[in-house]
């Protein structure tokens, strides 16, 4: 990955580099604490690090949307591998091949929307970290398949409907859509179910649930 591809990464590196030069210079030379020294230190300890932190935060938040970030916890390795696979026919992989989702397909499908959607999603992410630390850190993939579940599966249709509004005439022309319209809208029938579009992650179904679709 080229770090120079992102302007934020470049900005952060530039700020950090300038700050480091000032700080190392101060530590090496130890000039007297006159006004000029204080101004240099204000740049090295305040202005440039704050710039680096700002750019780094935005860069970090963007990084948390990427599939590679989600897949960096071992229990999500199969999900990442499936979405990376150009031959996979799973719902998740098919969306990953769509430019609207691309390498942020986990985030786009699982994020909360609305005014505080990003904040709620990040808070949910912190919950994932907590659960990973306390429960799943040493869990094998086989075990994870049995235990990892969506917290609110009935809300997932809402995320599908962010793009597939259920109002489009072409969409409504499909008899199954028309028949299940109300159930789909309230989440009683999942779009990503066996009888409809198939599970989003069919390889990750616990024993007893069908993996077809």
């Amino acid at each position: 990955m080229s770090v120079l591809a992102s302007p934020l990464a470049v900005l952060e590196l530039a700020c950090a580099g300038l700050s480091a030069m000032i700080l190392v210079g101060y530590l090496a030379l130890h000039p007297p604490l006159v006004r000029a020294t204080k101004l240099w230190l204000l740049l090295g300890l305040g202005v440039f690090p704050i710039g680096a932190a700002f750019a780094g935060n935005v860069q970090g938040f963007e990084a948390t949307k990427k599939r590679s970030f989600c897949g960096s916890c071992h229990v999500m390795a199969l999900h990442q591998r499936d979405s990376d696979d150009p031959t996979s026919g799973s719902l998740a992989a098919r969306h990953a091949r769509n430019a609207m989702f691309g390498d942020v397909n986990c985030y786009v499908c699982h994020a909360d929307y609305g005014m505080f959607g990003t904040v709620v999603t990040k808070a949910g992410g912190m919950r994932h970290v907590w659960l990973y630390l306390t429960e799943y850190r040493n869990t094998s993939l086989a075990e994870a398949k049995k235990t990892i579940r969506l917290r609110a599966p009935e809300q997932m249709n809402g995320n599908c409907m962010e793009c597939h509004s259920t109002l489009d005439t072409v969409w409504l022309r499909v008899p199954d859509h028309k028949a299940a319209l109300d159930d789909v809208r309230v989440g009683r029938v999942s779009c990503a179910s066996e009888g409809c579009h198939g599970f989003a992650h069919p390889f990750f179904r616990p024993p007893g649930e069908s993996t077809s679709g």
Binding site: V3, E12, L13, A16, G56, A63, K66, S68, F69, S72
Partner: peptide, 9 residues
């Protein structure tokens, strides 16, 4: 803070 640029996990 710069470590995350090179390893965004």
């Amino acid at each position: 803070m710069t470590w995350q640029i090179f390893d965004p996990s």
